[in-house]
């Protein structure tokens, strides 16, 4: 009989202890919260040492970037890509090596080459890219390259490449509106001449 009452008392006290624990956790949620609101918050990037200094060699994943002002539209990267993830379309420029201000086209690359083509489309499908780095070698102007490594100073380092929508993973490097713009410029010049 005494065991019966002792059981009741014990279970009551243990139940109250449990309820106290959950209640304190509920009140201290601001401090004790362990969830990371991922796209808005990120964990700090861990500092790590793989034999190089962090600044000297970026070990975080790299991805392709194009400096579109330097691109001459030679299609070498498109041809060499083993998975055909690069799509380039070009349009002949009216005058070789001349800036077209309407579409922000730069006529001369940073290496001093006069551009013949206007690049109207330069898409890299990052869902297909296999990060083989083959496209960066044939580029005569060195305008397509991997971020990270020696280029890590040029671009903020992103190690996730995550997007809300899958179509956002197709990186469009050509300036928006180039395709319509160049045709408008050409037709205007045709009308003038």
């Amino acid at each position: 009989m005494s065991r019966y009452f002792r059981n009741i008392a014990e279970s009551l006290s243990s139940l109250l202890t449990g309820m106290g624990i959950t209640f304190t956790h509920m009140l201290k949620i601001k401090k004790g919260n362990v969830t990371l609101q991922y796209p808005e918050e990120k964990w700090p990037r861990p500092e790590r040492n793989i034999g190089f200094n962090h600044e000297d060699y970026n070990v975080i994943r790299s991805r392709l970037t194009v400096d579109i002002n330097d691109c001459i539209g030679c299609l070498k990267c498109e041809r060499i890509c083993p998975v055909q993830c690069i799509k380039i379309e070009t349009e002949k420029a009216p005058v070789r090596g001349e800036d077209i201000n309407e579409i922000n086209h730069v006529g001369i690359t940073s290496n001093g080459t006069n551009k013949v083509q206007v690049v109207t489309r330069f898409d890299i499908d990052m869902t297909e890219c296999c990060y083989c780095n083959l496209c960066t070698y044939p580029c005569p102007e060195e305008c397509i390259y991997m971020t990270g490594g020696p280029n890590s100073k040029k671009h903020p380092i992103d190690y996730e490449f995550s997007e809300h929508d899958r179509s956002d993973l197709i990186y469009r490097f050509a300036k928006p509106g180039t395709k319509e713009g160049i045709q408008k410029v050409k037709s205007k010049q045709g009308a003038q001449s």
Partner: peptide, 19 residues
């Protein structure tokens, strides 16, 4: 929300309607 708070989670969260 309460179950989340009792388990040190935040429960359903979001920044605005839509996604």
């Amino acid at each position: 929300k309460i179950s989340a708070f009792m388990q040190d989670r935040v429960g359903p969260m979001g920044q605005g309607p839509g996604l």
